[in-house]
């Protein structure tokens, strides 16, 4: 579905990703690694926010590297960015509706998709009229995921969804992502490896802009290196 092949990417003279290859074939894929490993850079390269200087990125057989971001979104990939992802002065319902508004194929099916989103996050249905900025961090994150879903993506990318959330909310969020991956492919970057390994089917470990480890969730969970560095056992 999504294939990243031999990609180089960076900022100015600073090269962050080196000859990086990975793929998302369906289900949920995790992208792990410490701060500065290049996780967000890779996400931004996929979304057309960062320029790729070598290699290729294809989605459903079409090359998407260095295309404008809105085209990539219209083409079926949605992103939940790391922070400041909502319009705090707008209500929950407005935030959701604008998620579909700018995407041609999602626009006409807005009401339908809204029901799907409320199915995943019942709390949002109760709060449709509340201003997004007045909700708790966890609810805001769920709203951000909901808004990304409104664009009817076939691949949903989440950049560190657990950031700044209390453990019980993180647990809930990953449980919901587990349901979601049956209907839409999910790519999620995380530092909370323990929680995400419950949900993802496969994963990659990124260090210094290179993939150092890849495998199924079970393989990663049992890898001594992962255990030592990320699970803190």
């Amino acid at each position: 579905m999504l294939t990243v092949e031999n990609v180089d990417c960076g900022y100015g003279r600073l090269q962050v990703l080196r000859d990086l290859s990975m793929e998302v074939a369906g289900g949920a894929v995790g992208l792990f690694g410490p701060n500065g490993a290049g996780k967000t850079t890779l996400i931004n390269a996929i979304m057309g926010i960062n320029r790729v200087t070598a290699g290729s990125i294809t989605f459903e057989g079409r090359g998407i590297h260095n295309r404008p971001t809105h085209e990539i979104v219209h083409g079926g990939i949605a992103l939940v960015p790391q922070e400041r992802e909502l319009f705090p002065g707008m209500t929950v319902l407005e935030n959701l509706r604008i998620g579909a508004e700018q995407v041609p194929h999602a626009r006409d099916r807005g009401e339908e998709t809204l029901e799907t989103v409320f199915g995943y996050f019942p709390i949002l249905r109760e709060r449709t009229k509340q201003l997004a900025g007045t909700m708790s961090g966890g609810q805001q994150r769920m709203l951000a995921v909901g808004r990304a879903l409104m664009a009817l993506p076939r691949l949903l990318i989440l950049d560190e969804p657990s950031l700044g959330l209390q453990p019980s909310i993180v647990h809930e969020l990953f449980t919901i992502l587990g349901e979601m991956k049956e209907h839409v492919a999910v790519l999620v970057t995380e530092q909370n490896v323990r929680e995400s390994l419950r949900t993802v089917d496969r994963g990659y470990v990124l260090e210094n802009g290179r993939i150092v480890l890849r495998g199924t969730a079970d393989e990663l969970a049992n890898d001594p290196e992962v255990e030592r560095s990320y699970l803190g056992l």
Partner: peptide, 10 residues
């Protein structure tokens, strides 16, 4: 960035 991620042709 968020605008583009929401599909806005800036």
């Amino acid at each position: 960035t968020v605008a583009a991620s929401a599909g806005v042709n800036i």
